[in-house]
């Protein structure tokens, strides 16, 4: 797998997630406008909105995991030398890989359950499992990306030079 190819793959995943954020906002905006002007509710706008939210978050987690964008406690890491920094990074990434793999596996079970149980949307009675499956695929992508990240961290650490990042959360 060439590096350029991997980077393109990662970028694509991130763009998919970003597109979904915009769609969720648009869905809400349209729903509010239609409700307040025409007193019309888009059928299933609620169910579709929340399932799009799920898709956006899982695909976003894929991108975030690769970029090392999760919320972390950097107290120890920031105060040790490069050697220990690297050891900590490898350890943390391995734990991350393990946790997200387990999560992805259990989520597959959840998607299968949704399919078997015939859970439908409220207004139009559409099956919900396809939405859940797309969301799940995001988590699957996360496992792949974290695996790439782990590989690079261990074998090509020079490609993973990380700046202490700005997390515009608080």
């Amino acid at each position: 797998m060439s590096r350029a190819w991997m980077d393109r793959f990662i970028d694509t995943i991130e763009w998919i997630a970003a597109a979904f954020v915009g769609i969720v906002a648009l869905n809400i905006f349209l729903a509010v406008i239609l409700r307040n002007t025409l007193s019309y509710n888009i059928p299933d706008s609620f169910d579709i909105g929340r399932m799009l939210l799920g898709i956006l978050i899982f695909w976003g987690i894929a991108a975030t995991s690769y970029r090392g964008g999760h919320i972390t406690v950097d107290l120890v890491w920031a105060n040790v030398g490069p050697k220990y920094k690297r050891m900590i990074d490898v350890f943390a990434t391995l734990v991350l890989l393990f946790v997200v793999s387990v999560q992805t596996w259990t989520l597959f079970d959840k998607v299968r359950g949704t399919y078997n149980d015939n859970v439908l949307t409220f207004d139009m009675h559409m099956p919900t499992w396809p939405f859940f499956a797309v969301a799940w695929a995001g988590d699957g992508a996360a496992v792949l990306l974290i695996a790439i990240r782990t590989y690079r961290l261990i074998f090509h650490p020079e490609e993973m030079q990380e700046e202490p990042k700005i997390k515009a959360v608080e």
Binding site: I57, A63, G69
Partner: peptide
């Protein structure tokens, strides 16, 4: 616009993970 969408996605993903 693209940068805004990306930043929001990343942060949202980080918050939801927590």
């Amino acid at each position: 616009i693209l940068a805004s969408l990306l930043q929001a996605t990343r942060t949202a993903a980080a918050v939801f993970t927590v």
